[in-house]
Design a protein around this nucleic acid. Structure first.
Lengths: 144, 144
DNA sequence: TGAAGACTATCAAGAGTTTGATAGTCCTCA
DNA sequence: TGAGGACTATCAAACTCTTGATAGTCTTCA
């Protein structure tokens, strides 16, 4: 017997993800950043010199998607794409001064959304939510 | 003080949503349906005659996106787009026989993913998860 | 040393979605 | 009755992401 729509947890998860994206998009609009660009800058701030592929993993997107984002960020002068001296096939990325300034500003705006969500839940609730979502992912990953 | 990445609940929510989408995409691949098409057919099965705008709301996408999906489904012969006799500006959509057959088949496959997630959680856990996600959405919606 | 495997970067093409805008239709209330 | 507001459908353009494929580089191990 199939589950009715209201019984499906996927709907709640998707709705929450969309609400989250919408709020962040709104918060970042005035500074001309997309959510993807913000996420890449954030990963870059926390991991200076990270590769494009590393950013892709951190942001849960494909390497191609992150490459496109980095291209845009470089054109905006927010990051510097180094050429490794030892001539390797990797291009470490770093924030420019302007990028550093902007990500701090952006994180004040978009991070506030996350912060509201964080503050709305007691520490035990946060652990519970994380744990339940982890169980969901584990269940999804099971073999059919 | 900004939250560290590991403290951010948004990451867990996004990761779960992606895992869910990936599993459903995989389950539907063999029958040539995308997740968006599956979702539209499901909304249509549960609400015969629903409008395109109604499907958009049910699927949490824009009316334009649902219109594109319906166009594809009509071309595949899975739905019938009626022209309201009373000449209104609405086009009720219904499943064709083939569409009815396919959505049942598709829901066996993709619904199983949802079912695994459902079965992995005790009833109390399911309520808790839904309630916590609801609190997150409420917090996100608050005024900054 | 040399070959296999894993990782990184990038090009190209296609699919799907969003924003923005236009127009017809229905309902409500003054 | 008639104007306003809400809803529906749809066209068009831009954007982002994905899949698919190619090629260079690093590491490991026989």
């Amino acid at each position: 017997m199939a589950l009715t729509v209201s019984e499906r947890l996927g709907y709640d998860i998707k709705a929450t993800e969309i609400a989250f994206m919408t709020a962040k998009t709104e918060a970042l609009r005035s500074m001309g950043l997309t959510v993807a660009q913000y996420a890449a800058l954030l990963a870059l701030r926390d991991n200076p010199g990270i590769s494009g592929a590393g950013i892709a993993r951190a942001c849960l997107v494909t390497p191609q998607a992150s490459a496109a984002t980095l291209k845009t960020l470089e054109a905006k002068g927010l990051i510097v794409r180094e050429q490794d001296d030892w001539n390797r096939n990797s291009r470490p990325n770093r924030l420019s001064d302007e990028g550093q300034r902007l990500i701090d500003l952006a994180d004040s705006a978009a991070g506030a959304v996350e912060q509201r969500m964080y503050d709305a839940l007691a520490p035990a609730d946060r652990d519970t939510l994380r744990r339940l979502l982890g169980r969901c992912r584990a269940a999804i990953a099971e073999n059919p």
